[in-house]
Write a protein that binds this DNA or RNA. Structure first.
Lengths: 247, 247
DNA sequence: TTGACAACCTTACGCCGTACGGTACCTTAC
DNA sequence: GTAAGGTACCGTACGGCGTAAGGTTGTCAA
């Protein structure tokens, strides 16, 4: 087809895993995760689908990769006296990252692999909690309470906004169609979503987050009443050596 | 190519939307939501794929339908004085329903339609909160805090157990492979998941749930001080009752 | 007997992920 | 100069997916 000279001149940016992942993210950001197919991605890169397999091992590899990129965007909790403020900021940063890439939360939750960025985030948050005086057990619970809230909250918002984007006005139509007399509270709730003024400036996410943080602080101060910060009463238990047979 | 007589004798249970949905649920329960395809479902019913379209309008219709069935399994919060106990029981019931059908949480969160069972559940919970003395605004926030926690918590557990089921020992191998010295807290966290004894009998889900409920009760009793003369404001202890539910 | 109707099937289209096997170009060695 | 080998990319094909369009069969009322 094209003469060698043309082709040489044209395609001298020879792809890379980085570029593949960035483009995949862009597609997912724009058209949703379902619009990301190998063929579509290849097309975007001016290449055939199978060529991508020189840089990634499968589509799952791509999905893992773009999730890692999102997780890497999260601001890790800083050190210092105020554990609450540090954790709060990190959680909001997490929330924001997921809001920027609405497909990410669903991917994270659907049993995808844990990459280095994810481990680093968890390590930072867990460490920050331990450092603040939480016991190992309490830290475990605190982590999951925070993580659940972040994920659940963001997933809901993502689903809602996806629907609102796909079909604006669908919510109004839906609520007008149902017997309001039978579901007054539901109607009220939907109304609150439609008229943002009712939400008094505090997002649903931050409200729940503060609820959890307040509860945690109470537990923390109750369990270590006088000690200021470093009170690692228990040494960090090493992960068990292979007591079981290493496969 | 069976003869007419055979066919008449054999297939005289002529399908129905109910039967289609039940079978779809069974497939999803057993092999995960990805294993549910129209062809597979039809095969299970001894029928061709296109025949299903006489009972459902699309695959999404099926997904909506099975989600509704799951939601209908949730125990609605009962009336009475103790709003906290009522909401708590309902939340745990929700959690259990999602645990029985691990694909459901992901479907609910991915922008699927809201059916009557879902509306009924929301109405009951919202109404119960209002009745307990929460303001409209507070009820809105409380609902989302609870919902986020239930969804987030269950989604995480679903993903984790799906991975553990698909490849038992993957977690151990993963944690042994990473540099424990660099990620001591992460290693500790994983260890806590592997040795359930560390979890002292209170599930991650219930811990977070009680954190939220305690926080809500505090807000409630602060905003309506006179109505809290009942004994409901007991100290923040949670009942140590093990939520046993043989599935 | 006829004809309407419900229940179910056949075929086909355009997607999808990816296994397998090329081919074109670049670098390096002789 | 030329041959070898590696890197980057492409063509073809397979089995699966959801579903549009239309065909066939069995049942039953008129």
């Amino acid at each position: 087809m094209a003469r060698p000279a043309d082709r040489v001149a044209e395609r001298r940016v020879p792809l890379s895993k980085e570029r593949v992942l960035r483009t995949a993210m862009a597609i997912a950001d724009q058209g949703g995760i379902d619009s990301l197919s190998m063929r579509r991605l290849a097309q975007e890169l001016g290449v055939e689908a199978m060529s991508l397999y020189h840089y990634v091992s499968s589509k799952d590899d791509i999905l893992n990769g773009i999730v890692e990129i999102v997780v890497a965007e999260i601001e890790l909790p800083s050190g210092g006296k105020d554990w609450r403020a540090a954790v709060r900021r990190s959680a909001i940063s997490f929330h924001d990252a997921l809001a920027r890439h609405r497909w990410a939360a669903n991917l994270i939750m659907s049993g995808i692999g844990v990459g280095t960025a994810r481990v680093r985030y968890m390590e930072a948050l867990l460490g920050r909690l331990r450092e603040a005086g939480f016991s190992a057990n309490m830290t475990h619970h605190a982590y999951h309470a925070l993580d659940s809230h972040i994920m659940g909250s963001t997933l809901w918002a993502a689903g809602y906004s996806a629907l609102a984007k796909a079909d604006p006005g669908a919510v109004q139509r839906f609520v007008q169609k149902l017997p309001v007399a039978d579901y007054p509270y539901f109607a009220e709730h939907v109304d609150q979503h439609l008229t943002k003024s009712a939400r008094d400036g505090v997002s649903e996410f931050e409200f729940g987050l503060d609820l959890i943080l307040d509860g945690l602080e109470k537990v923390r101060s109750a369990s270590s009443p006088r000690s200021s910060t470093r009170r690692t009463d228990r040494p960090i238990r090493r992960s068990r050596r292979p007591t079981r047979r290493p496969s």
